Amino acid sequence: MTITTSLPGRVAPLRVLHAARRPALVLVAHGSHDPAAAAEIGLLHARVRRARPELDVRLAHLGLNDPRLPEVLDGLSGRVVLVPLLLGRGYHSKTDIPRTLAEAGHLAGQCAAPLGPDPLLTEALADRLAAAGWWGEPVVLAASGSRDPEAALDSEAQAALLSARLGVTVRPGYVAAGGPSVAARVAELTAEGHTRVAVASYFTAPGDFARLATAAGGALISAPLGDHPLLARLVLERYQACLARTVRAVA
């Protein structure tokens, strides 16, 4: 089986390793008190499993929902690849997830890069905006935010990708940490003379962050990325990139 892609800048086609040697794929979600978030991540998990039925694909959470990541890792053996369902660098992707994997000493594993920024997310965001009725307005990319400066760089890079794709101004705004806030970005663009401002939900699932973005005053807001087919494709690309690094290391 060969994985291919038509978008520029993607990982080159790779011959998938023999089934007996394929590591398990663990989707690592943040977790949420909102049942809608768990349902949406469950749909994404199911989509990835349908796309690669020969893989052992598990879903784990960092908190708030079960099963938790340590529990899932305890139930695995051999090799494993952890793919964070996170949209940028930060504490979870740089420290928390790798540490949890290291503590599972019985496994040989790798942690994939976060999902964002990435051209596939650009297309998914554009789809969500179109479904919400976007028609040329400037956009605020509503992200969760982080105290890690690299997370802000990742959000800014994704905003630049979306701006190039849509041909309009796209500026990142944040709902939790960092700044400026989504509401401040909406006000900023309005003050510049735009009568309508759209908000793109740069979240993997519904929940408190998405509700805060909805309340920020945009003329329209798109749905979170959720169970978008391109998100499942990106998860598998991150998995495949880890396998490619393993092959290069052995060669």
Rank of each mutant, 00 (worst) to 15 (best):
T2P: 09
I3F: 06
P8K: 12
V11I: 10
P13S: 03
R15Q: 14
R22L: 15
A24F: 05
L25T: 09
L27Y: 07
V28S: 06
G31C: 10
H33R: 15
H33P: 14
P35S: 08
A36H: 10
A39Q: 13
A39D: 10
L43K: 15
H45W: 09
V48W: 05
R49Y: 01
R52D: 03
L55W: 14
R58L: 04
N65D: 12
N65A: 13
P67Y: 04
P70V: 06
D74W: 01
G75T: 05
L76K: 15
S77H: 12
V81W: 02
L82V: 10
V83H: 07
L85Y: 05
L85A: 08
L87S: 13
G88E: 00
D96N: 07
I97H: 13
T100G: 09
L101T: 12
H106W: 08
H106R: 14
A108Q: 14
P114R: 14
P117V: 02
D118I: 04
P119Q: 05
P119Y: 07
L125Y: 03
A126F: 02
A130P: 04
A130Q: 13
A131L: 12
W135Q: 14
V140G: 07
A142F: 02
S146V: 12
D148R: 12
A151R: 01
S155E: 01
E156A: 15
A159S: 13
L161F: 04
L162P: 00
A164V: 04
L166E: 09
G167V: 06
G167R: 11
V168H: 08
P172Y: 02
G173A: 09
V182W: 01
A183M: 02
V186Q: 01
V186C: 06
L189H: 09
T190N: 10
G193M: 05
T195S: 14
R196A: 14
V199G: 00
V199Q: 00
V199N: 00
S201I: 01
A205C: 09
F209C: 08
L212M: 10
A216P: 04
L220T: 10
L220V: 11
S222T: 04
S222V: 02
L225V: 09
L225S: 11
G226Q: 03
D227T: 09
L231I: 15
A232K: 04
R233G: 11
R233H: 13
L236P: 07
A241M: 07
R248L: 09
A249Y: 02
V250N: 08
